[in-house]
């Protein structure tokens, strides 16, 4: 392919930035993106932000222990009682078998 690097819009650049998190860009895609980034500060920020989020998200805490969740995000008392009873019955059966 001897086609020239096309000028791409921010919308296309954003797509390529997002794609680059999922797979390696082709040389042509990479060149188009780089020529866009050379003249577009907004897309440079966008690239930085996606990389930033990509880096921190696997560290999303499994439990946010220092914050009390709102009541609607807690298991209801009735459910706790029910689950506790099911566990007891089951554990008792296991012990007896």
């Amino acid at each position: 392919m001897k086609n020239e690097i096309k000028i791409i819009s921010c919308k296309i650049a954003a797509e390529l930035i997002s794609k680059s998190l999922d797979r390696k860009l082709s040389l042509y895609e990479q060149a188009s993106l780089e020529s866009h980034l050379a003249i577009c500060g907004a897309c440079v920020s966008f690239l930085k932000h996606l990389n930033f989020l990509n880096k921190i998200l696997p560290q999303y805490p499994q439990f946010i222990d220092n914050i009390t969740p709102p009541a609607e995000e807690l298991l209801s008392q009735e459910s706790k009682i029910r689950i506790r009873k099911i566990l007891r019955d089951k554990d008792f059966k296991n012990a007896g078998s």
């Binding site: 819009s9 919308k11 954003a14 500060g41 907004a42 897309c43 920020s45 220092n66």
Partner: peptide, 30 residues
């Protein structure tokens, strides 16, 4: 997120906090 000429409607701005400052911040995760 884009206008008719495919520019960002609201341009991404500079984020000052560093990743390590964010990771420990429970309010951020909320």
């Amino acid at each position: 997120f884009f206008d008719r000429s495919e520019h960002f409607k609201k341009q991404p701005t500079h984020w000052s906090p560093q990743p390590r400052e964010i990771v420990e911040n429970g309010e951020f995760w909320k």
